[in-house]
Design a protein around this nucleic acid. Structure first.
Lengths: 216, 216, 216, 216
DNA sequence: AATGAATGAGAATTCATTCAT
DNA sequence: AATGAATGAATTCTCATTCAT
């Protein structure tokens, strides 16, 4: 990777190479432990060039986060079957999510583990992405409730909480799935199904006004 | 906190003070960015004393993780109503979980955000704690299924996936709740209820053999 | 020495400057007491540059030992009159030895005093050099014995012991000579003669089978 | 060693225990690398007690050097057969020297390797001891020359050089002998004989005015 | 478009040494 | 006679960053 001596590469290409190297290195070592030296070496260029193009470690990290977040959002968007019923949309979107995170584990690790743990500037970029996805889920749940003609049964804050729980569960499942050995790793479809069963099955009763209660 | 000049303190006490300072600092800055200098200063002692008692940054971090993990597990255990029906046990345990993470946000941040992102030795300690809790949840779901007389409908791997999703959702909710401004922050009881509604409501149908399926 | 501000020097040159500074400093202070700070300052560069080129204090010390040992061995080799009779070869080699140690007292101090006292890795490098020289002396004594047609009178182990004694005497004399004030310091030729008188004169009788015996 | 809990030991005894520990530790680690912590632990006492009795690391090292040097000189003195002929005196003294250094390798290592390499204050103590022994040898050679009635053939400076060479050879042999595996290690008597053969055999001709000469 | 040479600032860790009892 | 508690001052090593070409 980057071992082939290819000098005089156009800037746009070099930048992507550097960001590839950065994703790999940040995922492997963590933000602080990743050194610009290693990133430059993995990218197959000299350190000053990294600075020339990406200015600083912080900006490089930001650029990486933005690129990876955009790619993830795009993958989810592309996967969603527009016009389908709400549950079907969620299901297809989840498949896209699990497929993308499985194919880009380093990018996912940077977003999920590194970006959120290293200070406001980065956490905010991820929060923005998360908000975008959460909004989408909230919209779907609302639509489903309207489809079922019972949206008055779900308070807005409740929906927000549920969506966060669902996104959290999805992230946790993605991590769990990626962490397994390849031979027992569930496919994106299977993981999505697990989550749909967990999440959607309960939504029907909820929308009908049913609530769990201590009832001891 | 620790501002009062108190010299010649017995070792056991000093060690706890140092670990308090470490939790605070690791949560604020992250593992790598937290300096032993700052930890010592926050603890109100000199750096050599920190090394004398806790040996190294790595061991200090490990000790902190172990202490916080043990405290969290103990809090959950203490909250669970032993002997109650499965749903009730889960509900009380979740309350304990959300209450503890709300009261010890720094400890929770160290466990949830720092420990898992900084290499095997630490991640394993957290994984052990997580496994303990997940086992507990798995047991509860199994018990519930047996109580309902329909445990044959839930495959073992499915239960494992569900439990992971549930634990992940809980962690995500804890983070979400802690991150809100104090005035709109839900109580532990409310957060637990949100999750119970989300998770438990769907379990009934699941145990009866119902599954969500694409064909909507 | 190195006081002239000369920036942007090629790596190979800088490395030699650093090693010069290291020889000086290790000789002055001893291995442990010499600080990388001081070495860098003496070399006229910043500390990071020393680490960039020489990696660590240990490697720097090793590099210094290897360089100085090689220089000493080369000086002795160059001084030996190849093809001459054994005593003549020893005499010329000793002159080379005393001349080199007198001209490079710091290098000699590092080899003789520091390298042997600071752990296996370094001691072994010096031991290798010593072995090389000792082998050479053993060869010469053997040759002399054969020239005199009486090599059966010198057991192999005895030769080994004698050679060690001779090398030790030479090392001790070098130190002794270097330690004197410049005006009373004997020349390399004189020191070599002293040792030849001491060592070689007795070898004749020894080779003829004569041995000193207690009985006076 | 020092493992037996024996509290309330009289000062004089404790001091010797500490110095024993110090000899061991200085020999093992070298002066700088030996820590007062380790010395105290080996001695089986607390650090403040070491300071109370021996004041500082430097003073402790000095005390150790003095004690070991005195012991060595005493051993040599005790071994010399007073009143015997010069060669016999040298022979018996050498036996004492090799026997003592073999029985006290740590003490010898501290004197020979550590004390001379760590700055003036310590080197001077050893130099004093060395001078004492060298003086003794010079006296013996002078006596032998007078016995043979030919002391005018040996210039004073030549004698000094010879004596240094001899002492150096002895030190080198002691180190060489101690470094061998126990089963091939020569006895003090054998080592002394090797050196006598090397050194004394040549002295006869020297005293008679014979000199080695290049004679190519 | 690209790099070899160089550094200021800080990080973890260790050590000789003292204080209060 | 003896020690648990504590620290000021180094020391080794790393890293993000820049300069000159």
């Amino acid at each position: 990777m980057g071992d082939v001596k290819s000098k005089r590469v156009p800037r746009a290409v070099r930048e992507q190479q550097m960001m590839d190297a950065a994703v790999l290195t940040f995922a492997r070592r963590g933000y602080r432990a990743a050194s610009m030296d290693e990133i430059a070496e993995v990218a197959g260029v000299s350190k000053p060039l990294v600075y020339l193009y990406l200015n600083s470690k912080e900006e490089l990290f930001s650029a990486v986060i933005r690129r990876e977040a955009a790619a993830l959002v795009a993958a989810v968007r592309a996967a969603v079957e527009a016009g389908a019923p709400a549950d079907r949309q969620l299901w297809s979107g989840l498949q896209g999510f699990f497929a993308h995170t499985a194919e880009h584990p380093d990018g996912w690790a940077v977003l999920h583990q590194q970006a959120r743990t290293h200070g406001e500037p980065f956490a905010l970029e991820v929060a923005a992405m998360r908000a975008e996805i959460t909004e989408f889920v909230i919209g779907l749940i609302g639509a489903a409730a309207r489809e079922a003609g019972c949206d008055e049964n779900l308070a807005e804050r409740e929906v927000s909480g549920l969506s966060h729980a669902l996104v959290g569960a999805a992230e946790s499942l993605a991590e769990w799935a990626n962490a397994r050995p390849a031979d027992t790793r569930p496919s994106a479809k299977e993981t999505a199904a697990t989550l749909m069963n967990f999440a959607w099955t309960g939504l029907g009763p909820l929308m009908s006004g049913a609530r769990w209660a201590p009832g001891g």
